[in-house]
Computed example of a mutant assay.
Amino acid sequence: MLRRGFLAGAVGVGAGVALTACTSNTPAGNNAAPAPGAAAPAGNNAAPGRPVTIGFSAPAADHGWIAAIAKNAQAQAGQYPDVTYQPVNPTNDITQQIAAVETLINKKVDALVILPNDGSQLTSLGRRAMQAGIPVVNLDRIFDTPLAYRCWIGGDNYGMGVSAGNYIANRLRERNVAQPVIGEIAGIDNLPLTQQRSQGFKDALASFGFSVGPRQAADFTAQGGQRVAANLLQAAPRLDALWNHDDDQGIGVLAAIQQAGRSEFFMVGGAGSSNAMQAIQADNTVLKATVTYSPTMASSAISLARLVAQRRGLGDLVEHEVPASITLASATVTKDNVGEYLPLGFES
């Protein structure tokens, strides 16, 4: 599922600060001078610049979201005639990832986009590239220090939890549900991203006077989701709502719900897979919404690496440089707006 033209498409998933700015909004023929204290837009970032080579490294595609990361990066690089794209073999072995990126550093590529298996363990590699004069766009899993990257772009894990909590709480209020039982199926509990998602969910519910009820952690796989959901459903004879952190593991969660014959509650997913969005569109399961953590961020990372390597900024921003940090917003996808987001979904 190649994602062409995500320079514009990713804006709908929350990369507005980065990508809306990639093209000027000045109408053709508009020669009006900028207001005092403002600067004229920098122009069309899609226009060809000097040729650059962008290296890319990410983990192996053992998960639908990761698979989409690699596809999106390659598709976006293909949009630019001035970009030579040099990916290295994806791997879940940190030592192998370090060795592969070192080859790109030795080739003196113009920029690197790195989604590290582990941000902490690859921080020294990012610093080495930066010290060699190769700007690094750090994708999602962040390095330990800004000295290891020129720009970071990634999703908002805390914001995912907030979006899920707000949707659930508002829907329960509309139904006048008092003292609701709200379940949560998390990802891997010892990961900071899972902890951030859960904290955002808890905080959002608390702002409505609600709290998280039965909660169990899975492992971001369909098999783990099915096993954990079956256990949670057995322990909770009543549920009003359920948030599942990840749409890949949500395949198993939905299977467990159907096997248990439960339909008294509604569910919210996480990440924004096309499978989940198709179920939301069909409206024939308990899944009524998902909150995005879109792999289109890889498309954006390639676009940003190109601009940094060409020493260009974002067209609609006054500053001459690409920002140092860009956090994507987590959109809430429901039956009302699923048509807008479905083309950006990834296959679980």
Rank of each mutant, 00 (worst) to 15 (best):
H320G: 00
T285S: 14
H245D: 13
V322A: 00
Y293Q: 09
Q226V: 13
Q234V: 13
A204L: 06
A279P: 05
A218H: 07
R238T: 15
L232R: 09
G315E: 07
S300G: 12
S273L: 09
S211K: 15
G313C: 07
A305T: 10
A235D: 08
M297E: 12
L307F: 06
G261D: 01
V212I: 14
A218N: 11
G269H: 01
A222W: 12
L304C: 03
Q216R: 15
S274R: 15
F220M: 14
L239F: 05
A282D: 13
A222Y: 13
D246G: 11
A301G: 09
L205G: 01
A282E: 13
Q249C: 10
S300T: 15
L232A: 12
D247R: 02
T221M: 11
A236P: 07
D203N: 12
A206D: 08
L307A: 04
A309D: 05
A276C: 05
S198E: 13
S207F: 05
S303C: 15
R215D: 10
G272N: 09
W243G: 03
N231P: 03
Q281E: 11
G225C: 11
R215H: 15
G200M: 11
A305R: 05
E264K: 03
A256S: 09
Q216H: 14
Q199S: 04
V308S: 04
S299R: 02
R238A: 13
M267L: 08
A217G: 13
P214K: 08
D240E: 02
Q278F: 10
G209Y: 03
L287I: 07
A276T: 06
L232K: 10
F208E: 06
S211I: 14
A255M: 06
R306S: 04
L233R: 03
L205H: 01
T221P: 11
S294C: 05
V286D: 01
A301T: 07
D219W: 03
V291R: 02
S207Y: 06
G261R: 04
F220T: 12
G224S: 09
A289Q: 00
F201T: 11
T285P: 10
M297Q: 13
Q258W: 06
A289D: 00
S198A: 14
V212G: 02
R311K: 14
D283E: 14
W243N: 04
S207I: 10
S211Y: 12
T296D: 14
D248V: 15
